[in-house]
């Protein structure tokens, strides 16, 4: 009786359907797995390169300054590196800037295992609790309702990509988010600044394990690579230990950029920083 009823309710009659191939949804490379990599293949910690890089930077600075001191320090940031590469300082549109800020807040939350319920509302609540920069706050407050709706949609879409790609981060990796780095060069004449979205691993381990991660809400380009190298350089100068790798995810395209940090990569970054210093030093 039951069998016949099942038979009656089938859309396709028995033995009439053809063999079928199930295609699972495309597997994304998980950021957490990329950051961790294969622990067995990690190189020993490099604690010698940092001193050489600092010496190179100091030498390059001396060639520019000829020993003259500045009345106010020269500030170098990742934007200057982009300008060295593209020739112009690109100003991000307010909506794009706000989107970047809010998606970075989402990254901070998921790095500590926070369950995101509404990406936009959660990001705004988290951002507002930080007493945001007055300029950004004003830009947010002055958004028209349609712009705000667009921002909410944008943040939600980018957060979904981030959540899909991120994977699960073990708390034993000690995730540090929005890590600030400030380095003095030339006795304080030059201040090199950076902020890395996420750092995992320990610089005190025998094997290299520190991985740096940046989330980018635009498409990846050559300047993204430069900024990653800059992160690696500054982390090396700060801790005295060369990090294992740098990774960036574009939440606009889902592309992942990954580089294992090498001495030549750090030297390239040091050269770019030297060029940025030389370019800015001569300006009044």
């Amino acid at each position: 009786m039951l069998r016949s009823r099942l038979h009656d309710t089938r859309v396709t009659a028995p033995r009439q359907s053809m063999p079928m191939t199930m295609t699972p949804t495309k597997e994304f490379p998980r950021i957490a797995e990329i950051l961790r990599g294969d622990p067995a293949s990690r190189p020993p910690s490099d604690r010698h390169t940092a001193a050489g890089l600092r010496a190179n930077l100091e030498d390059a600075l001396y060639l520019v300054s000829h020993g003259r001191r500045r009345s106010s320090p020269l500030l170098i940031s990742p934007q200057d590196l982009r300008a060295t590469f593209t020739g112009v300082v690109r100003q991000q549109a307010p909506l794009g800037r706000l989107r970047g800020i809010l998606v970075a807040e989402i990254l901070r939350l998921i790095a500590v295992g926070f369950v995101i319920t509404d990406p936009y509302l959660d990001a705004v609540a988290a951002w507002m609790s930080t007493r945001p920069h007055p300029e950004s706050k004003l830009a947010f407050d002055q958004l028209e309702p349609d712009e705000r709706a667009r921002l909410a949609t944008d943040v939600t879409a980018h957060s979904v990509v981030l959540l899909q790609h991120f994977g699960h981060l073990q708390s034993t990796w000690n995730p540090r988010s929005s890590v600030s780095i400030i380095q003095h060069l030339g006795g304080g004449d030059v201040i090199v600044r950076d902020r890395i979205d996420l750092v995992v691993g320990s610089s005190s381990s025998l094997h290299s394990s520190v991985a740096l991660f940046d989330v980018i809400t635009g498409p990846l380009d050559n300047s993204s690579e430069l900024v990653l190298n800059y992160h690696a350089l500054l982390e090396t100068l700060r801790t005295g230990v060369v990090p294992l790798r740098v990774v960036a995810l574009s939440t606009a395209t889902g592309e992942v950029l990954r580089h294992d940090v090498t001495t030549s990569l750090l030297q390239q970054a040091a050269t770019l920083v030297s060029e940025s210093i030389a370019r800015k030093w001569s300006k009044p």
Binding site: R108, L109, V112, A126, T130, S178, S202
Partner: peptide, 25 residues
């Protein structure tokens, strides 16, 4: 606090503790 803002407090504290532990380990 909103629960997301509390999450950010945890993220900030985690960064502080991890940086300290890394230096003091």
């Amino acid at each position: 606090l909103h629960h997301a803002a509390r999450g950010l407090v945890i993220a900030e504290a985690m960064t502080w503790a991890s940086v300290a532990l890394d230096a003091l380990r």
